[in-house]
């Protein structure tokens, strides 16, 4: 656990889903700043600015696949094909459970692929689990 504030990049076109994510993240972790990017275009711009060093590398990136403009796979590629951006842990967080999507994401070196849960509390728990898991992560400093 660090006391530093962490940036979490939330690339999610659905405002409702973003609100859900932000609600639970805010509930569970107060030290996480959520950067919500609602479409592929703005995500690409943000990533560009990270790469330029204008913005810091986020702690984690939650990436929806279905996005206006560039979709999640493209963004994943952008991140993972770039040496610097590739260090961002990307958790593909999508409603899709299609094996095609999973296969593609893993191939593109997505760090995780998690389908958005549809249980009453399961959304919050999933977020919590993601966060917990990535808090265990030691390679952020590499």
């Amino acid at each position: 656990m660090t006391h530093q504030r962490r940036n979490l990049l939330l690339i999610e076109d659905s405002y409702e889903h973003a609100e859900l994510a932000m609600f639970y993240i805010a509930e569970y972790r107060q030290d996480i700043d959520i950067i919500h990017l609602p479409d592929g275009g703005s995500a690409m711009q943000y990533l560009e600015s990270i790469r330029n060093g204008e913005r810091p590398l986020p702690w984690l990136c939650l990436l929806d696949l279905k996005l206006p403009k560039y979709d999640g796979h493209e963004i994943l590629s952008t991140i993972k094909d770039d040496e610097y951006l590739a260090r961002i842990p990307v958790v593909v967080f999508t409603t899709s459970a299609a094996s095609k999507d999973i296969q593609q994401a893993i191939t593109k070196h997505a760090n995780s692929f998690i389908t958005k849960p549809m249980g009453a509390d399961r959304y919050g728990m999933t977020i919590d689990s993601i966060l917990k898991y990535w808090e265990l992560n030691q390679h952020e400093r590499i």
Partner: peptide
């Protein structure tokens, strides 16, 4: 995906 999305939202 798209139909799940409102469900996820609702839930």
């Amino acid at each position: 995906h798209d139909l799940k999305s409102p469900l996820v939202t609702s839930m």
